[in-house]
Amino acid sequence: MAYNEWVEKHAKKHKSIVQKLVKQGYDKEKIIDYFDFENMKEKEFDFCPLYAKNKKCHELESLNCYLCSCPNFRFNDEGIQKVEEKTQYSFCDIDSKDGRQGVYGEKIHQDCSGCGVPHHRAYVEKHFDFDWAKIMKVCKV
Results as ranks from 00 to 15, higher is better:
Lys20Tyr: 08
Ser90Tyr: 00
Lys12Arg: 13
His127Arg: 12
Asp36Phe: 13
Gly105Pro: 07
Lys137Trp: 08
Glu125Lys: 07
Tyr51Leu: 04
Cys92Tyr: 09
Phe37Lys: 03
Pro71Ile: 09
Val103Met: 13
Pro118Glu: 07
Val18Met: 10
Asp111Gln: 04
Trp6Asp: 03
Tyr3Pro: 00
Glu59Gly: 09
Phe73Leu: 11
Val7Lys: 09
Val117Glu: 06
His127Gly: 02
Ala2Ser: 14
Lys107Gln: 13
His109Thr: 05
Ala52Ile: 08
Asp27Gly: 12
Phe47Thr: 04
Ile17Cys: 10
Ser16Leu: 08
Lys107Glu: 15
Lys28Gly: 14
Lys134His: 07
Ala11Lys: 04
Lys55Phe: 11
Ser69Ile: 14
Tyr104Glu: 14
Cys65Phe: 08
Asp129Arg: 11
Glu61Asn: 13
Lys30Asn: 13
His14Arg: 10
Phe75Thr: 00
Gln19Pro: 01
Lys28Arg: 14
Thr87Phe: 02
Pro49Tyr: 09
Phe91Val: 06
Glu84Trp: 04
Met40His: 01
Lys13Tyr: 15
Cys92Gly: 12
Lys134Asn: 12
Tyr51Gly: 03
Tyr26Met: 15
Cys139Thr: 06
Asp111Val: 04
Asp93Ser: 10
Glu42Ile: 12
Lys23Gln: 10
Arg121Gly: 07
Ile32Thr: 09
Tyr34Gln: 04
Val141Ser: 08
Val138Glu: 15
Lys126Glu: 15
Cys48Arg: 05
Gln110Phe: 14
Val7Leu: 14
Phe91Pro: 04
Cys115Arg: 00
Leu60Gln: 07
Gly116Ser: 06
Tyr26Pro: 15
Asp36Ala: 06
Leu60Pro: 03
Glu38His: 06
His109Phe: 14
Val103Phe: 10
Phe128Gln: 02
Gln81His: 02
Leu67Val: 01
Lys28Tyr: 13
Glu84Val: 06
Cys48Ile: 03
Glu78Met: 10
Ile17Pro: 06
Phe130Thr: 05
Lys55Ile: 14
Ala2Met: 07
Glu85Cys: 02
Glu78Lys: 10
Gln19Arg: 07
Ala133Val: 01
Glu42Asn: 13
Tyr26Gln: 15
Asn39Asp: 05
Asn64Thr: 11
Lys140Tyr: 09
Asp98Tyr: 05
Val141Phe: 08
Glu61Leu: 11
Tyr104Gln: 13
Tyr89Leu: 00
Gly114Pro: 06
Pro118Arg: 04
Phe37Thr: 03
Glu8His: 15
Leu60Thr: 08
Lys15Glu: 14
Ser96Thr: 09
Ala11Trp: 03
Lys137Gly: 05
Gly25Arg: 08
Met40Thr: 00
Asp77Glu: 06
Glu125Thr: 04
Phe45Pro: 09
Ala52Arg: 05
Gln88Lys: 08
